[in-house]
Design a protein around this nucleic acid. Structure first.
Length: 586
RNA sequence: GCGCCCAUAGCUCAGUUGGAUAGAGCGUUGGCCUCCGAAGCCAAAGGUCAGAGGUUCGAAUCCUCUUGGGCGCGCCA
C-alpha cells in the first residue's frame, strides 16, 4: 500500500518535471510515512517540503501542484495539503479491510517476504568459551541473535546459524587443570586450588565423572603436584604465572594421552550442557564450528603464510605483527607470538576467511559490548585480504545487569558466582526470558529485574501479549459452545460492517505488521517487533472490553470473528519470531 | 590520555532514521465484571528530551563543545 502510494507520487513528480515546473533530476524516492495523528489521514509525505527550495516554489504551493498532478486510484479516498506543506492521504474504507483477508489467506506466511533472489546470511552468536555453563549475560546474545536470525529468514534470507567454539586456547587448559585438581581432591589428595582456576560447582561434577569412569588412574601425590611451583597471588606471587605453571605440571605428570582425556571430557561435557541449554531456550544452530579444527586443518598456518607473502606482516622483537593500522585499526596487532604460537586473532582471521569461502553474502557477528574494540581489527584483516569489510556486520549487545531485591548482582565465571541461563530459564520460563531480553534495544544497557521476570503477575509484559492470544482462543471456544459457525467465510464480505473506531484502529495496526517486520529485520532491532506486539495486544484488549464479538447479527459476528482471528494470527507470527509461544490457554 | 556506547516522566524504556501537540508499562489517584477469560479496560496526575551553541521551513533525532555514567585500549579468549 505504501509502495503504491510512492509510485503515485513519483508519477506526479515526473509529470511536473516534464511540464518544466521543476527539475526532478537527482531526486530521491519520495518518502511516505504513516501518520502519527489519525487526524492527518493514513499516510503523509513531505516531498513538497524537501523540494521546495530546489524548485524555488513555496512548500504549500508546490504541494498543491503535486496534488493536482496526482493520478486517481480506487483505494485512495482523499488527499489534501496540510500544515507547512505536507500532503496527507486517506485510504478508502475497503482498502483497510483487505488486510484481514490477506492475513487469513496467508496464515503463517503473512508478513514474510520472498525475494526473487535469496541472499545467504551467516550469523554467529553466543560463541561463549566452553569453560562453563552459559550465564545470564550470554542469554541476551542468544535471544537477540536468534531473533535476528528468525527475522532475516522472514524477509527472505537463507540463514545459517553458527556457534564458534573457542576450544583452542589457554582457557581450555585452565579448565582441564581445574577438573584434574578437583579430581585429586575427590580421591583424597589435599591440593591448593589456584586463584585463577575455575571454581564453579560444575567442575566438581565433571571431576566426579572422571573419577567414576577412570577410578584413581590420574592420581598423583599432592606434594609432587605442588613441588617448586611459583607462588600464587595470595602468597605474594602472580596468579597468571602460577596457573600457567600449574597447567604445565598437569601435562607433565599426566602425560599427553591422560591430559587429553581430561581436556576432552571437560570440553565435551560443557559443550553438551551449552547445547542442551540453548535448545531448551529455543536457540538452534546449523553448525558448531571448532576453533581447534582450524588448527588441525592447517587453515591458521596457511592464513598466516598468506599474510606473510602478501607483506601484511612484519617481525618485531620476535613477534609477527599485522599492519592493521594501514587498514583502519588503532594499532598493529600480534598474530604470531615469539614462541611461535598463533594468537586468537590469527585463528579468527582464518575463521572469517573460511566464512567467506563458504559463500555467504553477509556475515553477522553478535558480540558482547566488551568486544567492541575487536571489530576494527577483524575488518582490517578482511580489507587487507581484499574483501569488502562491509560484508561483515558486528552487532554489539550491551551487558545485562542483574537486579534482585533491588540490588545489583555481580558476576564472574572464574569465581563461580553467577546465575546460569538454565537457572533463569527454570525460574521465569523460556518465554519470559526471551521476551525480556529482546524487549530493549541491544545497544541499551539493560537492567534485568529478576523479581519482575519471575513474577506471574500482570507486571510481566510477556503475559499481556500471550493473554491477547489466549483470549481470542477463548472467544472461539465460546462461539463453538454457543453453536455459532466458526468456519469463516472467505473474502472480504461482511467486513464492511467493521465501522467502530476500535475496529479501524485494529485494522490499521494489522496492516502495519509487514513493515514492522521488515524494519526490525533490516535494522537488526527485534525490540521494534516486541513493541508492536504490545500495541496490537493493547488494541485487542481495548476492543474486547468495548464490544461484544459473539452477537446475534450473523454478518457482524462473522466480520468481528474474522478480525480477531486475523489478530490472533499476527500475534502468533510475531511471537514465533522472537521465540515465544502463543498459548491457547493460560 | 585516546576510542566506542549511553543520558527522554518518580522507576524501566519507546520514539517510524529530520516531521505536525514527545509516548507506553510499572508506581500513584479514581472508576469498570447479572455481559465472549479482570493476567483485562477507562480516566487523571506526572517533561527545560543532561547542559550550551550550531545546521534549516522544522531537531529528542544531525554537527561541535561541556557534564555525568558504562565498556575498551594483552602477545586473554
Amino acid at each position: 500500500m505504501k509502495a503504491d502510494l510512492v509510485k503515485l507520487i513519483q508519477h506526479a513528480l515526473d509529470d511536473l518535471s516534464t511540464q518544466g515546473v521543476f527539475s526532478a533530476e537527482g531526486m530521491r524516492e519520495p518518502m511516505v510515512e504513516r501518520t502519527r495523528d489519525p487526524a492527518h489521514g493514513d499516510f503523509a509525505t513531505n516531498v513538497a517540503l524537501i523540494h521546495s527550495k530546489a524548485a524555488k516554489i513555496p512548500p504549500r504551493e508546490l504541494a498543491e501542484k503535486i496534488l493536482a498532478a496526482l493520478p486517481d486510484a480506487p483505494w485512495l479516498a482523499h488527499a489534501e495539503v496540510a500544515g507547512p506543506g505536507f500532503i496527507n492521504f486517506r485510504l478508502s474504507a475497503d482498502a483497510h479491510l483487505t488486510v484481514v483477508a490477506s492475513i487469513l489467506d496467508q496464515g503463517e506466511q503473512f508478513g514474510r517476504s520472498n525475494p526473487a533472489q535469496r541472499q545467504k546470511a551467516h550469523i554467529e552468536f553466543v560463541s561463549a568459551n566452553p569453560t562453563g555453563p552459559l550465564h545470564i549475560g550470554h542469554g541476551r546474545g542468544a535471544a537477540y541473535g536468534s531473533a535476528i536470525a528468525n527475522l532475516l529468514e522472514a524477509i527472505g534470507y537463507d540463514v545459517y546459524r553458527e556457534y564458534y567454539v573457542n576450544d583452542a586456547g589457554r582457557q581450555m587448559n585452565i579448565l582441564a587443570t581445574s577438573i584434574w585438581l578437583r579430581y585429586l581432591e575427590l580421591v583424597g589428595e589435599t591440593v591448593k586450588f589456584p586463584t585463577n582456576a575455575y571454581k564453579g560447582d560444575y567442575i566438581w561434577d565433571i571431576a566426579a565423572t572422571l573419577h567414576r569412569e577412570h577410578g584413581e588412574d590420574y592420581r598423583h601425590p599432592a606434594d609432587q603436584v605442588h613441588a617448586n611451583l611459583p607462588a600464587d597471588e595470595p602468597d605474594g606471587g602472580n596468579k597468571e604465572q602460577h596457573i600457567d605453571a600449574f597447567i604445565e605440571r598437569a601435562q607433565q605428570l599426566l602425560g599427553d594421552s591422560a591430559y587429553q582425556t581430561i581436556f576432552q571430557l571437560g570440553r565435551h561435557v560443557i559443550l553438551a550442557d551449552i547445547r542442551d541449554d540453548l535448545a531448551r531456550f529455543r536457540v538452534n544452530y546449523e553448525n558448531w564450528y571448532s576453533e581447534q579444527g582450524l588448527f588441525d586443518s592447517d587453515a591458521v598456518t596457511q592464513t598466516i603464510e598468506r599474510m606473510r607473502q602478501e607483506n601484511l606482516l612484519y617481525l618485531k622483537e620476535g613477534n609477527w605483527w599485522f599492519r592493521s593500522t594501514d587498514y583502519g585499526d588503532e594499532k598493529d596487532r600480534v598474530v604470531v607470538r615469539e614462541n611461535g604460537s598463533p594468537t586468537y586473532f590469527a585463528s579468527d582471521i582464518a575463521y572469517h576467511l573460511d566464512k567467506i569461502e563458504r559463500g555467504f553474502d553477509r556475515m553477522i557477528n553478535v558480540w558482547g559490548a566488551d568486544h567492541h574494540g575487536y571489530a576494527p581489527r577483524v575488518k582490517a584483516a578482511l580489507k587487507a585480504l581484499n574483501h569488502d569489510p562491509k560484508c561483515l556486520d558486528v552487532l554489539l549487545v550491551q551487558f545485562a545487569v542483574l537486579y534482585e531485591n533491588g540490588e545489583k548482582k555481580s558476576m564472574s565465571t572464574r569465581s563461580g558466582e553467577f546465575i546460569t541461563l538454565r537457572e533463569l530459564r527454570k525460574d521465569v520460563g523460556a518465554d519470559a526470558a526471551r521476551f525480556f531480553y529482546v524487549m530493549r534495544k541491544s545497544e541499551q544497557h539493560m537492567d534485568f529485574d529478576l523479581d519482575l521476570a519471575r513474577s506471574q503477575s500482570n507486571d510481566n509484559p510477556v503475559y499481556y501479549v500471550q493473554y491477547a492470544h489466549a483470549r481470542i482462543c477463548a472467544v472461539l471456544r465460546q462461539a463453538k459452545e454457543k453453536g455459532y459457525p466458526t468456519r469463516i467465510t472467505p473474502g472480504i464480505q461482511n467486513l464492511t460492517r467493521l465501522t467502530e473506531p476500535h475496529e479501524s484502529n485494529l485494522l490499521k495496526t494489522l496492516a502495519r505488521y509487514p513493515e514492522t517486520l521488515h524494519n526490525a529485520a533490516t535494522q537488526a532491532e527485534p525490540h521494534q517487533l516486541v513493541h508492536y506486539l504490545r500495541e496490537l495486544a493493547n488494541e485487542l484488549h481495548t476492543y474486547y472490553n468495548a464490544h461484544q464479538f459473539l452477537v446475534t447479527d450473523e454478518a457482524l459476528r462473522d466480520a468481528r470473528l474474522k478480525l480477531i482471528l486475523a489478530t490472533r494470527q499476527v500475534i502468533k507470527n510475531g511471537l514465533a519470531l522472537i521465540g515465544v509461544e502463543a498459548p491457547e490457554k493460560m
